[in-house]
Amino acid sequence: MKTTESWQTAEIPGPKRAFVISNPKIVSSMIKRSERPLLIVGHESLEEISDKKLIDYAISMAEVGEVPIVATAHIIGEFKDRGYNTAASMSLIEIGERLTDQSWTGLTGEGQYDLVLMMGFPYYMSWLVLSGLKHFAPRGDKYLTTISLDRYYQPNASWSLPNLSKEDWKETMSSIVSELGGK
């Protein structure tokens, strides 16, 4: 399997498909450049990818990168249990729909987001929500920039990690956190 094939074989993408994140610095620099980033975290973030769970990387990234989090499905309590109390709770399709609305002023009323990062979702749910954002989330004369940080290549994002082994995924997530200034 190539690193840039859709994980689910029949999900043939295109013509427009994601650039591959070949270096974690791409993610950290995009976060740093972004004026209004948002990290959306799904229920599969409770999966262990090493000694840590994906949700732990999400919290680290949010803290060091100053990225607000939306916890989808029922997992808001997991953030609070970890002492992270500023995550918002909203379902995946609710936040997805709001991101397509240019007039939406965001979770705190400070304005629409210009960069969305996603992790912790069933592949097909990410695939479709990222597709919705690809086609229906204009930002001026461009479109919303989206980044998929899940383990498998997501062609409907603007940028996506390639298909990775668990070990490489863990390394990538750790690198993103450290590039953002964390440990």
């Binding site: 013509p15 427009k16 997805g96 479709l128 597709s131 919705g132 690809k134 086609h135 229906f136 204009p138």
Partner: peptide, 23 residues
């Protein structure tokens, strides 16, 4: 409606495939 397209194209007629991505 909040649309979540399966793919970027329409392939229902012989004009197509037509790329419908991003407007």
């Amino acid at each position: 409606p909040f649309y979540l397209p399966f793919c970027d194209v329409c392939c229902l007629c012989t004009f197509g495939k037509c790329d419908l991505s991003q407007g």
